[in-house]
Write a protein that binds this DNA or RNA. Structure first.
Lengths: 354, 354
DNA sequence: ATGAAAGCGCTAACAC
DNA sequence: GTGTTAGCGCTTTCAT
């Protein structure tokens, strides 16, 4: 008892394969109701299941979408993956998932694999947007970049600059003037935009005095290290990760540093590390240190204290991306979505509940 | 300029398609070195990329593995997905991912979709193990269950009972006697095993007095609600989620309840909710309340205080599962992996660093 | 060592 | 309304 094929069904129903195909696909030609019933019965009886592979070979479409992210274990990408999968499933598509591990050459390999698999389209958070775009265009495979993207490609981003401004302003409104920032890695598209937003907002308050920022990876450990650099009364020895001077000039002689009253963290993960560092240093958040962060992944809601954060519209991004990939005639897409400030406890606003 | 096929390469190289196939696959027949080079050059020049779909149609294997989990946004499953993808990639396979949303009928639909796609094998955290197993067996598709599984199927689990015992004993060793438990939903295979482990350990200390447990979902909210039920001085009105009596009898008249000194939480997510509830109630962890949890997902390390937890060997599970699916002649598999206690701060042990 | 050709299971012309 | 048949791109026997 090998695989049940259309031919088996046709035989059982006493019809031709074409008719079976017509009823399975509801077209392209009409079928008499009586015949239809016989075919349906035969399908039921034989346990026939259409073969997607053969279908894809002739039809051209695999009904499969690819998703490549740096690290699915990161809650932000995990939530994104969940949203993409859901949107794809709603549209009858399946999702091929892969991690680039933040590595450009791994990403390119993955791309190659996906193209061999003939995915219909790809959603990608890319480490090498230009190269990826070239490859995908050559293969005529639809794709949309999330975050960093070449000018000419379809992309969906969020207003990183505006979000960072809003976050920082909220801290300003709490009356803080010394607002430091934990930025993402130098050179990172997203990280730079958020840093610029913080700079912009903080520059509006010239009384801000010594404002500092440090650049660290978008990780919990990165946030922890960053926080230590920012909060430690005795400055660490030089040679560590980049530590930026004030935008108004150097932040003063080492040792004479004043502790920031507030910190804008460029990502939730970093904020988690910051929270831990603050606890280790005996600093209470938000009493001794106010914090606002960026991302709005679920982890921000569960932290203690709950994090006030700039929330990215993950579901919207996913839906937009999937729609773009399966739209019969897609328009050029270059979306920049709005982000919202979600006020919780870490900024010093009054408590709310889970 | 349509798709570049093997025929194009053959033409460019001045050979037959068969030879192209031989060099691409390194067999099954030998090819003269000179010819090989010509073919390679032709491939390079035409930009040929083998078509995985056609290959799968004739070859039988899609080189694709499926993964179905209840919710990829849950960090435990996200970490699992990352590990499975990595193991699959290392073995040259690609992963088709889907969320069952904890719903059995969605899961069955997904199964159907994956089967149509002719996946080579499936890793599944199932809501309906028996039905899934039947379906997969009928389709002759290899599969391994993680967690709940039918007797006869390949499965990988962890020692939930033993882990819960170890967690509870650790609390006992801290000198606590009133150790409550936050259990998972009643009827859940995994939840029951962990609850039984707690029961077993706690029974060894008859002085334990009023030991209580409550059953709530494996979610942050579930943990929060559970904690409220357990910790609130004034008992909530009845009618809420199941609240278990002591194994030594009823836990005493309402209102006369004594607050537990420690809590064993059945999952990290619940523990996060518990931490938040404790904070809301002004209870300090571990000083007022010691906590040990189960799962060991990254979130447990980042919580404040860091959670002492029973760690599941996720990478090992993933590797074992993938190996089982691609092993040329697989042995029946019914693995129960050991779990380890990771001591951090929440149990009351001395602090360590990130 | 190489080539010709038969399918893999299906869809969609194209006939009737 | 239904049947026949030509591929989709590839692997692999079977000749040569």
């Amino acid at each position: 008892m090998a695989r049940v094929t259309q031919a088996d069904v046709a035989r059982a129903a006493g019809t031709s394969m074409a008719v079976v195909s017509y009823v399975v696909n509801g077209g392209p030609r009409p079928v008499a109701e009586a015949t239809r019933q016989r075919v349906l019965a035969a399908i039921e009886q034989t346990g026939y299941r259409p073969d997607g592979v053969a279908r894809a070979l002739v039809g051209g479409s695999t009904m499969t979408l690819g998703l490549i992210v740096p690290d699915i274990a990161n809650e932000f990408f995990a939530e994104l993956a969940a949203a993409v999968e859901q949107a794809a499933r709603a549209a009858g598509r399946t999702v091929l998932l892969a991690n680039s591990e933040g590595d450009a050459s791994t990403e390119l390999d993955l791309l190659d694999t996906f193209l061999q698999r003939r995915i219909d389209g790809l959603v990608i958070v890319s480490q090498a947007p230009a190269a990826a775009d070239r490859l995908l265009n050559r293969a005529k495979t639809r794709h949309v970049f999330l975050g960093a993207a070449p000018e000419s490609a379809a992309s969906i981003g969020v207003d990183n600059f505006g979000g960072a401004v809003a976050a920082t302003r909220h801290l300003l409104e709490h009356g803080h003037s010394r607002i430091a920032a934990i930025a993402g890695p130098a050179g990172d598209h997203v990280a730079e935009a958020r840093l610029a937003g913080w700079r912009h907002a903080v520059a509006a308050r010239p009384t801000a005095g010594r404002v500092r920022f440090v650049q660290h990876p978008f990780t919990v450990t990165g946030g922890y290290d960053a926080a230590l650099a920012l909060l430690n009364p005795s400055p660490l020895a030089p040679g560590g990760p980049a530590s930026g001077a004030s935008i108004f000039g150097r932040s003063g002689p080492a040792g004479a540093r004043v502790r920031p009253q507030a910190v804008f963290a460029s990502s939730d993960r970093q904020a988690i590390g910051l929270l831990r560092a603050a606890a280790d240093l005996g600093l209470s958040v938000p009493d001794d240190l106010a914090v606002v962060t960026f991302d709005g992944s679920s982890i921000s809601a569960y932290a203690v204290p709950a994090l006030t954060t700039i929330q990215q519209p993950i579901a919207e991004m996913a839906e937009l991306a999937v729609r773009q990939l399966i739209d019969p005639d897609p328009q050029p897409l270059r979306a920049v979505l709005e982000v919202g400030l979600v006020v919780r406890r870490s900024c010093g606003c009054p408590p709310a509940h889970l």
